[in-house]
Amino acid sequence: MDREENYICRCEEVTEEEIRAAIRGGARSVQEIKRWTRSGMGICQGRTCRRLVERILAEELGLSPGEAEPSSFRPPVRPVSLDSMDGSKE
């Protein structure tokens, strides 16, 4: 497969190469990778890509997954319409 086409984050179209480049540039946490590349900021909020990013991070740093990322993960919300937040209509 063409490496350019190897999307890790499908929502934001971030490739494996871009994730690895961020780590080589100095990003050392999923949070930092997310802020630099937008991977995990898409509509699924990282449900699909977070694990993959953790794995690549661990691999690049030569650690076991979990070791690379001790910070906690906030469960994302599902997309909700703004209108449904209108408490006065309930």
Partner: peptide
């Protein structure tokens, strides 16, 4: 949720088209 509800209603007030928009985060 109380604060987010106020933010949502406020933006719909200023920009009514926002009522059909989803928030993701």
């Amino acid at each position: 949720p109380e604060a987010l509800g106020l933010l949502a209603r406020q933006v719909i007030h200023y920009f009514p088209v926002m009522k059909d928009v989803h928030f993701i985060r």
